[in-house]
Design a protein around this nucleic acid. Sequence first.
DNA 1: CTTTAAATCGGATTTGTTCTGATTTGTTAC
DNA 2: GTAACAAATCAGAACAAATCCGATTTAAAG
Lengths: 141, 141
Amino acid sequence: MKVEEALQILKEHGYKYTGKREEMIRICAAEKRYLSAKDIMERIKEQYPTLSFDTVYRNISTFVELGILEETELEGEGRFRLACSADGHHHHHVICTECGKTSSLPGCPMNVMASVPEDFQVTGHKFEVYGTCKECVAQSN
Amino acid sequence: MKVEEALQILKEHGYKYTGKREEMIRICAAEKRYLSAKDIMERIKEQYPTLSFDTVYRNISTFVELGILEETELEGEGRFRLACSADGHHHHHVICTECGKTSSLPGCPMNVMASVPEDFQVTGHKFEVYGTCKECVAQSN
DNA sequence: CTTTAAATCGGATTTGTTCTGATTTGTTAC
DNA sequence: GTAACAAATCAGAACAAATCCGATTTAAAG
């Protein structure tokens, strides 16, 4: 997803434009990486030093609801990245547990592995591979 | 896994036997379901009304380390169930997001979907299907 | 420009979890 | 069985992530 697309989605849903929202989206767009709310706060402080964490959290959940951000959870805290499944076709990620960097995996296990018991009404699924990326492996030596 | 097995594992690793530990394991063994720390506390209070949450949390993490419990995360809190992948062969679960009930899925996407980029040093993976079980669907009507 | 609802602020609050220091309990050696 | 020691537990303080709240500011529509 591109920054402009994300802003368009906000507009379409009747949300107001604010520089803070745009900047948050820009920050997420700048890295193929899951960021924590704290990471985003840190980066946005350069431009908006007084931004409150309430604003960051509230906007993040708006973005997640609208499908602008994708969410996961690492070490007990929420992590976010600009949605990319929406772009082409649905896929999953390899995630570096050190730095949050991601790499796409082709395909989805739901297509390959049938046989979900029929008495479950399926609402979603998660497939994530965890590991350490090249850079983080190097750094830990 | 059976309660006796779990106690055996504790013993082998030099952990002491306590009634509280056994009861915690029994509680988890009694249900094919992910329980929160709070769920476990609630159930154990019948027998050990003064048990502190510190003890519950500490024992849970010991159990997870030893592979007695499996861990996941639902709605921002840790959930636990008696390990069953260890029993037969490795597999994954469909999980009811209402009540934590689980159902096994045969196989593992890691076997089916090769192609993890080689510059990632893989340490783990998660495949979970979420939904609402028959009972919880019925209840919400 | 005025109006109004949405967004933001700043700080208090809540929730899940971990830490700390004092006390109790299982286990081992006698 | 008893003594001694390390591990386990207790109670509550502390912590971190996330949410809530009332007051203020701001984007956008008329």
